[in-house]
């Protein structure tokens, strides 16, 4: 046996103009349209009210104190630590001190969380609807066409990916069917969108699918009990080993300039 026979298929050149190009153009335009639809559908993020801001920033203050404690002299650090630990343990900075110690309410009943879910729903809808429409369109008009040949060989595993809709077993993997071209553009157009719309566009399906796959991640923050966070931070402050960076700085400086 010499070389395997190279498959040749004579394709009508009109396939390029009437299938490959339309699918690509439609996919790009859908992405742009989706971007603008998402921008319109987006609700402005709700403003936090003052107690919430206070609660959050007070916690950050404690974290700052812990991480940068070494700039303070021991006495002022001790004074601050005593104050912060006590305030944290008393729950002084809590947004609603009444609900302290009670279990968190169901996130479904929280209107703010519902709003976030609505936003996600909208995102999904803006993605699903055009996707299914276009797939239907391609299936109706272009199914079963082999429209292009890849310039490089591939292993047979790619057959299901590249030749969906074409039911021939012996066809070389390098031939791409129209439905597969649709999927390729669906996932591969991100750089094009970046070029047209700027880098933080909403036309990207892939990142949205990533965000969807772990919806908990974005919502864990407000989900946690702030009181627990405060108590945790108080404990961290309690056990902190304080070192003063200004200890012996005079000698350090003298040594630095002597060198």
């Amino acid at each position: 046996m010499a070389q395997p026979v190279v498959q040749t298929i004579h394709r009508d050149p009109a396939l390029f103009w009437w299938i490959l190009l339309p699918i690509t153009v439609v996919m790009i335009l859908t992405g742009i349209l989706r971007h603008y639809a998402m921008t319109l559908l987006q609700t402005t993020p709700k403003k936090q009210d003052l107690p919430k801001i206070r609660q959050q920033r007070s916690l950050v203050r404690g974290v700052n104190l812990r991480t940068n404690a070494n700039v303070l002299s021991p006495s002022s650090f001790q004074a601050r630590k005593a104050y912060m630990v006590q305030a944290y343990q008393e729950g002084k900075f809590l947004a609603d001190p009444e609900s302290r110690g009670k279990p968190r309410p169901n996130p479904m009943s929280d209107p703010a969380a519902m709003e976030g879910m609505m936003g996600m729903m909208k995102g999904n809808m803006a993605m699903m609807v055009p996707q299914s429409l276009i797939m239907g369109w391609i299936n109706a008009f272009f199914s079963g066409f082999v429209i292009m040949k890849l310039p490089f060989p591939l292993t047979p595993q790619f057959k299901s990916m590249l030749q969906s809709g074409v039911g021939t077993r012996d066809l070389d993997v390098r031939w791409v069917s129209s439905l597969s071209w649709y999927f390729l553009t669906l996932f591969g157009l991100q750089p094009v969108y970046n070029f047209i719309l700027g880098s933080n566009n909403a036309a990207n399906q892939v990142t949205q699918q990533m965000a969807m796959s772990n919806p908990g991640a974005g919502m864990m923050g407000p989900e946690q009990d702030p009181d627990k966070l405060f108590l945790n931070e108080a404990e961290n402050l309690e056990v902190l080993d304080h070192q003063w960076i200004l200890e012996g700085i005079e000698e350090r400086l003298v040594a630095k300039f002597a060198a």
């Binding site: 200004l246 700085i249 005079e250 350090r252 400086l253």
Partner: peptide, 15 residues
């Protein structure tokens, strides 16, 4: 002494 220390630190950070 504290004042001296802080001035030293500011010079150590930016000579």
């Amino acid at each position: 002494a504290l004042s001296l220390k802080h001035f030293c630190r500011s010079i150590e950070l930016n000579d």
